[in-house]
C-alpha cells in the first residue's frame, strides 16, 4: 500500500518535472526566437564611434545616455516598431542627420563600450589621443541613386555637396559635358567612401521627394573584392601580395586522376 502511494507520488513528481521541462523548452524557444528577431538590425545607422554591429547589439545596455547627450535630437532609442534591436540608439538622417559635433558629446558618455572613443581618436604622430575627431566617424556611407538625382539629369543642383561638412572631400562634383544640350555641363555629385562619415547631412538636404542620396550602413552599401585581385599598377597594393597567406591547393598528378578513374571503374 505504502509502496503504491510512493510510486504514485514519484510518478506525479516525474510528470511535473517533464511538464516543467516542456514548458521551459517551449518558453525558451519562443523567447529565443523573439530575441533573435528583435536584435536583427542590418539597416540601422548607429551613433558615431559605434563598434561593429554584431557586437554593438550585445554591448549596448540600452540606457539612452547618448540620445540625451545629443544636442540635435538626432539619436533615438528603438521602439518595438522601429525594426531594429529594441532599445538601441539609431538615427534617421532624412529626419535629423548627425551634425558632427567637434566634441562628439554622444560618445564619451556611453558606459558600456558600445560607443568607443578610440575608434575616432584624433591621432598625433600616429598615436591615439584622448580627443575625438568626428571626421573619422564611419556611421555609414552615402550612396547616390543616379536615376533619381536631378544633377545626373543635367539640372543644376548641388544641395548635397553644399550640405556636406566635408565639402569637396566626401562629396565632389564631377564635371561632364552635356551632349544633349551641347552647351551645358553636368555637375554630378560623387561620394568618396573613405572620407564620408555617413552623417546624412546630404540626405537631409536632398531636394528630391525621396532623397536621391542616402546613407546606408557600411556593410550594406559596400562590396569586397577579395584578396586575389591586386592592383598591379599600385605599389602600395602590390605590397599586399607579400603579406598574403599561401593557399595550398592539392596538386593532382596525371596518375592521381587515372587512379580516381580506376576507382570509379572498380566499383562496377
Amino acid at each position: 500500500m505504502a509502496d503504491t502511494q510512493n510510486m504514485n507520488s514519484r510518478r506525479d513528481a516525474l510528470k511535473t518535472m517533464f511538464r516543467g521541462a516542456g514548458l521551459l523548452g517551449l518558453g525558451g524557444a519562443a523567447w529565443g526566437s523573439t530575441a533573435i528577431k528583435l536584435k536583427a538590425s542590418e539597416l540601422t545607422l548607429r551613433p558615431p564611434a559605434a563598434i561593429d554591429e554584431e557586437k554593438f547589439v550585445k554591448a549596448c545596455i540600452r540606457c539612452g545616455t547618448c540620445v540625451e547627450a545629443c544636442p540635435y535630437d538626432t539619436l533615438q532609442l528603438a521602439n518595438i516598431d522601429d525594426h531594429t534591436a529594441i532599445g538601441t540608439p539609431f538615427f534617421k538622417p532624412r529626419l535629423i542627420p548627425c551634425y558632427m559635433c567637434p566634441d562628439v558629446p554622444c560618445v564619451p558618455v556611453c558606459p558600456s563600450g558600445a560607443l568607443d572613443v578610440d575608434i575616432i581618436a584624433k591621432q598625433i604622430d600616429g598615436i591615439n589621443t584622448e580627443e575625438p575627431d568626428i571626421n573619422k566617424a564611419k556611421m555609414g556611407v552615402a550612396v547616390v541613386d543616379q536615376e533619381a538625382c536631378i544633377a545626373y539629369w543635367g539640372i543644376q543642383c548641388d544641395a548635397c555637396y553644399r550640405a556636406c561638412p566635408l565639402l569637396g572631400e566626401a562629396i565632389t562634383l564631377e564635371f561632364a559635358r552635356n551632349e544633349r544640350t551641347g552647351k551645358h555641363a553636368f555637375l554630378k555629385p560623387v561620394v568618396h567612401r573613405e572620407i564620408c562619415t555617413g552623417c546624412g547631412l546630404c540626405e537631409h538636404a536632398c531636394i528630391t521627394e525621396k532623397a536621391a542620396i542616402f546613407v546606408l550602413p557600411l556593410n550594406v552599401a559596400t562590396g569586397r573584392v577579395g584578396e586575389h585581385y591586386i592592383k598591379g599598377w599600385d605599389k602600395a597594393d602590390e605590397e599586399r601580395l607579400k603579406n598574403l597567406k599561401e593557399e595550398k591547393t592539392k596538386k593532382s598528378s596525371p596518375e592521381d586522376v587515372l587512379n580516381d578513374w580506376e576507382y570509379l571503374l572498380d566499383d562496377d
Partner: peptide
C-alpha cells in the same frame, strides 16, 4: 539564452526600460 541568441535576452523584451522609453521618448508600439 543570452549566449545562444548573442544578445542580452531579457533586455530585448524588458518591460521596465520599455515603460521608461515610452514615458520619456514616446511609446510607439511599446
Amino acid at each position: 539564452l543570452s549566449p545562444i541568441v548573442g544578445v542580452a535576452a531579457f533586455e530585448v523584451i524588458n518591460p521596465i526600460t520599455m515603460l521608461h522609453r515610452g514615458i520619456i521618448f514616446g511609446f510607439g508600439m511599446g
